[in-house]
C-alpha cells in the first residue's frame, strides 16, 4: 500500500539521517534537537503555552528519572512525587531563607533529594512489588503531610517569593526566558539517561528487573544497582523540583504534590512505555497536555488517569513506545516480504 510505503520511507529517511548525523559527531543529533526546540517560545501563540512547554520539560525530567528506577530497574516506587517536593522545597528554603542564588540552591536541592532517594531505596533491598509500592507511597505522602503541617515551609498557605534565577543582570523572569534554562537541562537529562541505559549499567538494571537471582548469579550487584537506580532517579527529581520552584511565579503549595500528581506521574511512565528508552519523554508530553486540556475536570482526573493506567497495563504493556517499535518492525517486515527493503541489520554493515 502506498501509505505503508510512505511511512516506511519516512522511517528509513529518519534513521539514515540520524546515522549520518552520528557519523559527523556522536553529539550532532543532540545539537539538532536543541536547534529544533530553541525557537519554540516564538512559535507558540501565547504565554500560557510557553508556560506549558516549561512545565513539560520539568515533567520530562521527573518521568525520565522515574522510568530508570521503575521501568528499567523494575522497582515499583510510587512516592516519587515526594522526592520532587523535597527538591522543590529545599531549593525554595535555600534561596528565600538563606539568600542563596539559584546556582547554589539547585545543587543543594539535588544533594538533599539524593539523600532522600537513598532512604527510599533501602526498603527495596527487602521488599518487592506491592509491598515496596505501599512503603514508597507512605514515604511520598508523608513528605506532603509534613510540608502541610510545617509553618516554616508555609504549611497549606504555600511558600512564595522564590526568586527567578539570574546570570549577572540577566534574570530568567519570564516563561520565554525560563525556557532557555529548563529546555537545555531537560535535553541534558534525556541525553544522560540514554547514555546510562545503553551501557553496562543499564543492562544491569534490566537484569535486576527481569530476575534478581539470575542477575546476582551473573555477577550483578543487585543491591548496588537498585541503590544507584534510586539515586539517579532522585537526582532527576531534585533537578525537576528546583527548576519548578524557581520558575515564576516562584510559588509552591503542598497541593501540587498529592496522590493525584503521583498517579499522573505513574501514568506518564506507563503510557510512554515502562522500560522503553523514550517512555518518560513520550509520556510526559502527552499526559501533561491531556492533563491541561482536562483540567476543568480535575476532581475526576484520579479516576480518569487511574483507569487509563489499568487499561494501558492490560492492553499495551509496553506503552506507546512499544507500539511505535512494533509499528516500525511491522512496516519493515512487510517491506522485506515484498522485497522492497533490506533487513534492518544490513544498514549497519554498510
Amino acid at each position: 500500500m502506498a501509505e505503508q510505503a510512505a511511512s516506511l520511507r519516512f522511517i528509513d529517511a529518519t534513521e539514515r539521517g540520524l546515522t549520518r548525523l552520528r557519523a559527523v559527531h556522536p553529539l550532532a543529533p543532540w545539537l539538532v534537537a536543541f536547534l529544533l526546540l530553541a525557537p519554540l517560545p516564538w512559535v507558540l501563540l501565547n504565554t500560557y503555552h510557553v508556560f506549558l512547554a516549561n512545565f513539560i520539560c520539568v515533567m520530562i525530567l521527573l518521568s525520565v528519572g522515574l522510568n530508570i528506577v521503575k521501568g528499567f530497574c523494575g522497582q515499583v516506587t510510587v512516592g516519587h512525587v515526594g522526592l520532587y517536593a523535597i527538591g522543590a522545597y529545599t531549593a525554595a528554603v535555600m534561596s528565600v531563607n538563606f539568600g542563596m542564588t539559584f546556582w547554589m540552591s539547585l545543587p543543594i536541592a539535588v544533594m538533599v533529594t539524593l539523600l532522600a532517594g537513598a532512604v527510599v531505596g533501602i526498603p527495596s533491598f527487602r521488599l518487592e512489588g506491592a509491598y515496596l509500592a505501599l512503603v514508597t507511597l507512605g514515604l511520598g505522602e508523608s513528605v506532603r503531610i509534613f510540608i502541610s503541617a510545617t509553618e516554616y515551609l508555609g504549611a497549606t498557605n504555600g511558600f512564595s517569593g522564590i526568586p527567578a534565577p539570574r546570570i549577572g543582570d540577566f534574570r530568567f523572569d519570564t516563561y520565554q526566558k525560563y525556557y532557555y534554562l529548563v529546555m537545555p537541562v531537560m535535553l541534558l537529562g534525556v541525553f544522560f539517561s540514554f547514555r546510562i541505559l545503553r551501557s553496562r549499567l543499564g543492562r544491569g538494571f534490566m537484569a535486576v528487573r527481569e530476575d534478581p537471582v539470575a542477575a546476582a548469579a551473573a555477577g550483578v550487584n543487585v543491591r548496588g544497582h537498585k541503590m544507584i537506580a534510586f539515586l539517579i532517579s532522585a537526582g532527576y527529581a531534585g533537578f525537576a523540583g528546583a527548576l519548578y520552584a524557581h520558575m515564576i511565579p516562584g510559588y509552591l503549595n503542598p497541593r501540587n504534590f498529592t496522590v493525584i500528581e503521583m498517579v499522573t506521574l505513574l501514568l506518564m511512565v506507563v503510557l510512554g512505555g515502562l522500560g522503553h528508552i523514550w517512555g518518560g519523554v513520550i509520556g510526559a508530553i502527552i499526559v501533561t497536555i491531556v492533563y491541561d486540556i482536562t483540567k476543568d475536570y480535575y476532581h475526576y482526573s484520579l479516576l480518569l488517569f487511574g483507569s487509563v493506567i489499568v487499561l494501558t497495563v492490560l492492553f499495551m504493556p509496553k506503552g506507546i513506545g512499544g507500539i511505535i517499535d512494533r509499528f516500525i518492525a511491522t512496516r519493515r517486515f512487510i517491506a522485506i516480504r515484498e522485497g522492497r527493503a533490506t533487513r534492518p541489520g544490513s544498514d549497519d554493515a554498510a
Binding site: R203, M206, E210, D211, V213, A214, A215, A218
Partner: peptide, 14 residues
C-alpha cells in the same frame, strides 16, 4: 531464569 524481556545478545552481555 533467562532475562525474558531482554534480547538474546543482551542476555549474554549481562
Amino acid at each position: 531464569r533467562v532475562f525474558s524481556e531482554m534480547t538474546v545478545l543482551e542476555n549474554l552481555l549481562v
